[in-house]
Design a protein around this nucleic acid. Sequence first.
DNA 1: TTCCTGCGGTACCAAGTATA
DNA 2: TATACTTGGTACCGCAGGAA
Length: 346
Amino acid sequence: MADARETNARRLRRLTQMRKNDSITGACRALQGIWETGRKPEAIVLRSTLLQASEERSRLTRLVLPKGIALRFYLLAAFEAQCRLNVGEEWENALPLSGRGSWSDIVAIDGAYDTDSATYMHGTVGIRKLENLRLQQIKGALRTLEELGGEHALVTMPRGKSGQREYKNFLLMNESGRGGNQTPDVYTVPARHWAAAKTIAIPAAFFLKGWIQVLNPSEVATWLILRMLRKWAPNKHTTSGVYLYGQARLETFGLRDDAWEDGCQRLREFGLIRFAQPPDIPPGTPSELKVVFSQPTRLRRRYEPHHWQVTDEGLNEDAAKRLDQELTLRQQELETAARHRAQKRS
DNA sequence: TTCCTGCGGTACCAAGTATA
DNA sequence: TATACTTGGTACCGCAGGAA
């Protein structure tokens, strides 16, 4: 059931719960601690091999899944690594899976929702607490990252005597996957590369302000692809915006129509991208004038995709607060539109 | 007439949850 | 940890409206 009203309402409900249970602020606090006690990188560098599709879908879009935190976990692991390690250093796990200062600490979840009673953590028994649910999600993410399979696996885990996974001893792989060699391609911190096709940078605010916790995987994937396009064509990005035709999007990144279209619309509402605006708008332009640019400034020719610009200043807002505002507004608009449709039919 | 965008509905299936 | 069942996000399709 993908009714826009229901989907939006569900998302709003989950966001409200995460704000209520302090999940987002807790995860942000933990990430801030990792950042401040570490190397304080301004941006996290990602090898673009994560985004690129060859014959099959890219590893990035294979992590655009309806549920789970696999993509989020991989990006969080890259963040943690780059706060702790120098460029070129090989990754080894420094955090426990659960407890204070653990992997569970840096992910925000809403908890188990019971539709019938419309309550969270309904009939909670014994060990079923938020902390346990977080641990389960971490383990689920590790399984998903491993099960990308063979050379594509983004995580490997040793097996115990009876073949069970030793989650706590997992190994993080490079963005290009485990590789086909006997020795796995263990994650090393990449250097920022001048060549557009090599790396992209994710500002630390994406992690510290909670965006990593609240964006859907399809939105994260769309946003990363737009950042990649900006790196490929910086001048075009500044002057007229970047864009992708459907076929190029599928062949280069393996991202499907709906994920891209919805992703772009939501990212625009959240203030992380905008319709392309001309470069002669002075940086200090008052916000009331900037509102003009919430609409496309150039007329699209027929069959022409939207032109976008990535706006990093949007990342400095409190993600949960911004999403709350925008999703509430969208819910009102969707309700109004539904009422009008109903009136028209009757 | 063509073909886009946007919306709504449905099927599929991965991930979450309960339980043994 | 394994298994069965439930949940809900994505992919896909069809339709309406609109622009050229």
